[in-house]
Design a protein around this nucleic acid. Structure first.
Length: 561
RNA sequence: CGGAGUGUAGCUCAGGUGGGAGAGCACGUGCCUUGGGAGCACGGGGUCGCAGGUUCAAGUCCUGCCACUCCGACCA
């Protein structure tokens, strides 16, 4: 490819709209442009990278036995109404009407569409298993698109769906996809973690996320360096350290004027925060509940929502507390007329402090069973850095990650709702067991840049680079340079190397700056050393440089392939 | 969706108190130059986000709307 005939509009300055490295460099180096918030154009360079990423994914998916197909983006509302997601998905679903006023949605994901295809065409266990995937543009009207390709409203995703006759088989398929994902992210040279994840609104039995370790990541991860346990904090478990048992002390009401936060109460009463129990009131869909948790821990709203099978969980507002006759700042479980859910952290805790549900008073020496009734204890607390690992008890570490893949064992959530049944060997009709598997393809492009860049620009790993080799002819007025440059260019092309020749008549400095920005891994510079019959070879990643004799260039090019 | 900020040339931005629409870069032409975004000269380029209002006069003041960005909520 000749740079003089190519379209790679590079920018000298950082675009004002971009904050994170991937967004800044993908725009500056001419890979993408934004059209509207969270909507991007892929320019020729960007598309080349995208295709390389897609092909790595495609190769591994095909190897796994999954079948590629292509589903419509435009999907009728009826399918979404069957599973209830027409309402549940909310504003994130892009909706539109056709000329007959019928409702449609632009597909944000395709469980409904693929399940519809399968239910219409699969009758018997003999037709199963099936595993499909597609690489396609998805639409989600995100409340807050940000960070360029990291969170867009229109983006490219690889989504896959598996159909098995039994949970046992479905788990086997799930494991195959897990291995396939590991291969894909290794192929892409990413520094990533596979973590246990919450299934979220998509539902299902269990799931794993693949997250790339980057500072701009939105996922909070805890992981254990000694045994390898890793989980999204939404789902992370941890080992609870218990305080030693104590003799029960008599219940005591104490005056605590204007002392309400855990830290204030702890220092006022001179007790550790572990012996204070917070009573938190949440509104779960349309009901109120109380959660009891030790003072040094935080409630994980995702875990609470899962326990209560609620769609929406949030702390009660001050107004709501007033209506419930609860004294804000001194909330306590004694005499409280709400369902109480105890976190594991208060199981086996003795002589603790709670709010008295009366302004400026707390209770001391409260004990479960004697003073308050808590029948079950649940895992409702967020894991945090230094908590003991649930598997090996080593201290957990915390990091942020960018989710680039997510796999779910769905079970029968969609097949039951949409009546995707098959007839089993025993002649009985059963719902198909499903799994679904997503990879954010366009987000991967950003994730790679997040991990592979320096202060000059992008440093593409060889496998996804838009070109393999960048040839710079520094002086286009010099006939010898031009001749050698084009000869090397032709030789490289003949060897099947993807090569970009910078034959633009601009200053050498501008060519170097653009080359650094664009980040093609191998570079041949044709400049002054041509007088000694040599050209210069450089790597973008190591800045390694070496001189190559003109008559040895051909054999050198062989080593690049 | 709650809070905040920004919107002036292709890009980055400057334009106290109301009165000439500007700079650097980019772009075009010419000269010069060719190893890290060169130099000189000339030139083209604007619905000052949109609509309304105040005023003799609005980029500037007021109101409404829109877009973009940030923090948060949200995010199969």
């Amino acid at each position: 490819m000749l740079a003089s005939r190519y379209f790679m509009p590079t920018l000298k300055e950082n675009p004002s709209e971009a904050q994170v490295p991937s967004h800044i460099y993908l725009i500056r180096a001419g890979f993408i442009r934004s059209l509207s918030a969270g909507i991007y154009e892929y320019l020729p360079l960007g598309l080349r990278v995208l295709r390389k990423i897609e092909n790595i994914i495609r190769k591994r998916m095909d190897e796994s036995g999954a079948l590629e197909l292509l589903l419509p983006i435009l999907t009728p509302a009826e399918l979404w109404k069957e599973t209830g997601r027409w309402d549940v998905y909310g504003k994130e679903l892009f909706r539109l009407k056709d000329r007959k006023d019928a409702d449609f949605a632009l597909g944000p994901t395709h469980e409904e569409t693929i399940t519809d295809l399968v239910r219409k065409n699969v009758r018997s266990y003999k037709d199963l298993p099936l595993n499909f995937y597609q690489i396609q543009t998805k639409f989600r009207d995100e409340a807050r698109p940000r960070y360029g390709l990291i969170r867009g409203r229109e983006f490219i995703m690889k989504d896959g769906y598996s159909f098995d006759v039994s949970e046992e088989d479905a788990i086997k398929t799930y494991e195959i996809m897990k291995d396939t994902y590991h291969k894909i992210f290794k192929d892409l040279k990413l520094d990533y973690l596979m973590v246990e994840a919450d299934v979220g609104a998509i539902g299902g039995k269990f799931s794993h996320e693949f997250v790339v370790k980057v500072p701009s990541g939105e996922a909070h991860i805890v992981y254990c360096e000694s045994c390898g346990y890793a989980a999204n904090v939404e789902a992370a478990k941890f080992h609870h350290n218990k305080l030693p048992p104590e003799e029960l002390q008599p219940l005591e009401k104490v005056y605590t004027p204007s002392v309400s936060s855990v830290e204030e109460v702890a220092s006022f009463l001179k007790v550790p925060t572990q012996k204070i129990v917070k009573t938190l009131i949440y509104k779960a869909d349309d009901k109120f509940v109380a959660v009891l948790i030790r003072g040094d821990r935080e409630v994980n709203e995702t875990k609470l929502a899962n326990l209560l099978k609620a769609l929406d969980v949030r702390p009660a507002t001050s107004e709501e507390l007033k209506e419930l006759n609860i004294v804000e700042g001194f909330v306590g479980p004694i005499g409280l007329n709400l369902p109480i859910y105890g976190d594991y952290s208060i199981e086996g805790l003795y002589n603790f402090v709670v709010g008295a549900n009366e302004k400026d008073y707390h209770y001391k020496n409260v004990n479960i069973g004697r003073d308050i009734k808590v029948e079950h204890f649940y895992d409702l607390a967020s894991a945090k850095e230094k908590d003991p690992c649930p598997v090996c008890k080593a201290p957990l570490k915390e990091t942020t990650g960018l989710e680039v893949g997510h796999i779910f064992l769905l079970g029968t959530k969609y097949s039951s709702a949409m009546k995707a049944y098959f007839t089993d060997k025993d002649g009985k009709e059963k719902p198909i067991i499903m799994g679904c598997y997503g990879i954010g393809v366009s987000r991967l492009m950003a994730a790679i840049v997040e991990q592979y860049h320096d202060d000059k620009g992008i440093i593409w790993p060889d496998v996804v680079a838009p070109f393999d080799l960048h040839i710079l002819i520094l002086n286009m007025k010099d006939e010898k340079s031009v001749k050698s440059g084009f000869e090397i260019y032709e030789e490289a092309k003949n060897l099947g190397i993807d090569v970009l020749l910078d034959d633009r008549d601009i200053s050498p400095g501008a060519k170097f700056k653009d080359a650094d920005l664009i980040g093609i891994p191998n570079r041949i510079v044709i400049g002054k050393s041509l007088n000694e019959g040599k050209v210069e070879y450089q790597r973008r990643d190591s800045q390694e440089k070496k001189m190559i004799d003109l008559d040895k260039v051909k054999e050198f090019l062989q080593t690049l392939k």
